[in-house]
Write a protein that binds this DNA or RNA. Structure first.
Ligand SMILES: [Zn+2]
Ligand SMILES: [Zn+2]
Ligand SMILES: [Zn+2]
Ligand SMILES: [Zn+2]
Lengths: 163, 163
DNA sequence: CCTGCAAATGTTATAATGTTGCAAAACTTG
DNA sequence: CAAGTTTTGCAACATTATAACATTTGCAGG
């Protein structure tokens, strides 16, 4: 049995968030990109949830902050964060999640629990390699890989009524 | 250089469509599922395009037919077709495409050209296997795999201005 | 042939997600 | 500071998807 991955068990998540924000600040500085207050706040909101957050969820949180924001504010911030590799969009959920490999060159693979909604981002070189091979066999030049796996996480398998 | 895959080169596509419809009729009969006129027409419309078709594109075609349809009509037909493995939804495009492996047990992998929009569905056991391995290493029980690759197809790579 | 049930469809309205376009403000650079 | 660029505010709009309920259709048993 594998050790339980971080999102599936209790931990000091504030520390995760702080680290993610610190990393983001550093990455943006290196890239001469401006992590403005709105962008940083959106990143923080997304990180505070291990579950993917929809754009309108983010918007609602901003509104609670007293920030009188409209959808474009959120989508622009999300675009920026994606562009700089700080968040990923989960196409099958229309939602966003903080990247746990920010700054590293990687192809994300997401394990999405249909019960508890937690998402674990993996880097699986074997998978990426197989995908590249399959594509190049067809002469296809890969830009972006969307790889999202829905199922049951270890925690939720252990609970009753999940057959 | 690999042989050019079907969607990328001219061919008698009416034959593809006819075959797909015939297969669908057989599959539905075997499963005691009712391939009603609307469902069959939606499947036909989707197959007539090698490019993924949005639900509202389908709706527009039905309207041209003189069928006074509303969104639920289309979404219900699409749900049925998906459930019976006759079409796939491409999450990254919010669009649907005919399954080229209907009736076979398979995990679709889609090569989506960002230039010509054609989609090639592959069955890549090596990829599926690698995905399963990666998931089970985390103790994750896989239900559904979304695997969509955006990039440039061989035809479009050959044309100028695609760097 | 009827009768009654279940599956499928019609209809209206509405929710959820995402974009365009333009004007104002903030920041950067010389 | 002045000029140019990036970011934000804001209003309207576009696209994708679902909810709720009435109606019709196909089919099995009597
Ligand atoms: Zn990542
Ligand atoms: Zn779970
Ligand atoms: Zn398929
Ligand atoms: Zn192409």
């Amino acid at each position: 049995m594998p050790a339980s991955a971080l999102p599936y068990r209790p931990h000091n998540h504030d520390a995760c968030v702080s680290r993610a924000l610190a990393d983001a600040r550093e990455i943006c500085q290196q890239q001469h990109a401006r992590l403005t207050p709105t962008r940083e706040r959106v990143l923080e909101l997304i990180w505070q949830s291990h579950k993917p957050l929809g754009a309108y969820d983010v918007l609602a949180h901003l509104t609670e902050d007293g920030h009188n924001a409209a959808p474009p504010t959120v989508y622009r911030a999300l675009d920026f964060l994606q562009q700089h590799g700080l968040v990923h969009r989960i196409a099958s959920l229309n939602a966003f999640i903080g990247c746990t490999h920010a700054g590293e060159q990687h192809t994300g693979m997401f394990l999405i629990c249909r019960k508890c909604q937690n998402v674990l981002e993996l880097t699986a070189p074997a998978v990426s390699g197989a995908v590249e091979d399959a594509a190049s066999t067809e002469g296809f030049d890969v830009d972006e890989v969307t790889l999202e796996i829905a199922g049951l996480c270890p925690q939720c398998q252990a609970e009753p009524g999940n057959d």
